[in-house]
């Protein structure tokens, strides 16, 4: 009995000693600033900064190899605190948010073929340039939904990706993954957008979509300060829009592509355009 206790006891002591020595010998020194940075970073490990996880970004920040304003999900608050820890001056960037520039859902935009295969937009895009006749519209297979680390994206009943503006942090991962660039970042303060991504002519757009921008320039004529044309696609001049005139342009848009989005990404003023709905039923 006694022998066993002594035996085990001394064994324990030796092991403890070894552990203590190992801890000394192989200790890894971490810059305290890196620990502090880990506290302030968003912690989503989303990778939007271009580093594999928050830890790697913190290390790069301490090493001075990364810019301090890359943590998009953290926003202005995180940026301020990073600047404080690193002791550098930074200029705040206006917060951005992802916008899905397409309304051509299953009922509105004509399909090109019956796609069967991997439920991934990028894979589908490789087969005859995507299953929709529109070359720029949302495919609705949800690559962005899978990629979003914040659960801000979903596929709605129309078969389109929808941004939950309350959850979106503007990290831009969905923008990078979308094979048709139908998702883009826009200033978070803006809520009026032209929800179309198609730069083709009116005749072509009409042949496959009920709700695409025709490039008719009505909005530009109504509110020249607020809208600008890019080929056959009207776009809002972010930061220069005048809401009162824009509302009028919204009314006049023949395909109702100009919408005012609320927090969930639904349009506030008009529900689904009634005229478009009538036309869509065959």
């Amino acid at each position: 009995m006694m022998a066993a206790m002594i035996c085990l006891g001394s064994l324990g002591c030796v092991a403890a000693l070894l552990l203590a020595m190992a801890a000394r010998r192989f200790a890894v020194t971490i810059d305290p600033r890196q620990v502090a940075l880990m506290e302030v970073l968003a912690g989503a490990n989303c990778g939007a900064c271009g580093f594999p996880g928050c830890d790697a970004y913190a290390r790069a920040l301490v090493a001075g190899t990364a810019k301090p304003d890359l943590c998009r999900p953290g926003g202005a608050e995180t940026l301020k605190r990073i600047a404080a820890i690193l002791g550098v001056e930074v200029t705040e960037r206006p917060p951005q948010i992802a916008v899905m520039y397409c309304q051509g859902g299953l009922q509105q935009a004509r399909p090109k073929y019956d796609y069967q295969g991997l439920q991934d937009c990028r894979a589908a895009q490789k087969l005859a340039r995507g299953p929709k006749l529109c070359p720029a519209g949302c495919l609705g297979l949800g690559s962005c939904v899978q990629k979003c680390p914040f659960g801000a994206l979903s596929i709605d009943a129309r078969g389109l990706a929808m941004v939950d503006r309350g959850r979106c942090t503007g990290c831009g991962l969905c923008v990078a993954i979308c094979p048709r660039q139908v998702l883009a970042l826009a200033p978070a303060t803006e809520s009026i957008h032209v929800l179309c991504n198609n730069r083709e002519s009116a005749a072509r757009v009409k042949s496959y979509c009920n709700v695409g921008c025709l490039g008719c320039r009505l909005c530009v004529r109504t509110a020249p300060e607020s809208f600008v044309m890019d080929s056959f696609l009207a776009q809002v001049r972010y930061g220069r829009g005048q809401p009162a005139v824009m509302a009028e342009a919204m009314e006049r848009c023949p395909h109702h592509c100009i919408l005012n989005l609320d927090e969930q990404g639904n349009d506030q003023i008009l529900p689904t355009p009634p005229s478009a709905r009538e036309r869509s039923t065959p």
Partner: peptide
């Protein structure tokens, strides 16, 4: 949008 023949399957 004019009607059209049944879609072909592409896989």
């Amino acid at each position: 949008m004019e009607p059209r023949t049944p879609l072909l399957i592409v896989s």
